[in-house]
């Protein structure tokens, strides 16, 4: 089998995951996208291991380790997301903006009560969308 097939498939899956990480709003969906990226790497590892016929099978061993680590990561990630959700009432990544540049010397503030004038254009549609989402949920 041509090595290019698994390699290209891995690339496509990785970039799909990349898009998901960058574009998804819900933190759990972001985690799913991360899983996709990890799996793309796993595919690469397995393909190259098989291609190289490694005596130690380092690629496959590493794949197994990656799977285990991914499981741990998903556990920790989910617990973090849960805690954020309990504290903030949301798990939307783009609404967790405590590190945004504040407009005044009053220190960090929530993104909605003091939106920086520069970010106002970007946040306003999101805020309205979030409100709609909240209504839909309720």
């Amino acid at each position: 089998m041509h090595l290019a097939y698994p390699a290209v498939l891995a690339v496509l899956l990785f970039c799909t995951g990349l898009y998901g990480v960058l574009a998804r709003r819900n933190a759990i969906l972001v985690l799913m996208s991360v899983e996709l990226m990890l799996n793309a790497v796993n595919l690469n590892l397995v393909a190259f291991d098989v291609w190289l016929r490694d005596a130690l099978h380092a690629g496959q061993a590493l794949t197994l380790f990656t799977i285990a680590i991914a499981a741990a990561e998903i556990g920790i990630g989910l617990s973090i997301v849960l805690m954020v959700y309990r504290n903030r009432g949301t798990s939307d990544v783009d609404r967790l903006r405590d590190t945004a540049e504040a407009t005044g010397p009053t220190g960090p503030a929530g993104p909605e009560d003091t939106a920086p004038d520069g970010a106002a254009d970007a946040t306003d549609p999101d805020a309205t969308a979030a409100a709609q989402k909240a209504e839909a949920t309720a």
Binding site: R97, A100, G118
Partner: peptide, 15 residues
């Protein structure tokens, strides 16, 4: 001020 606009606090933008 221009640089400050980049500091949106949105992780995805940074990433």
């Amino acid at each position: 001020a221009a640089v400050r606009r980049a500091q949106t606090g949105n992780v995805q933008t940074y990433l």
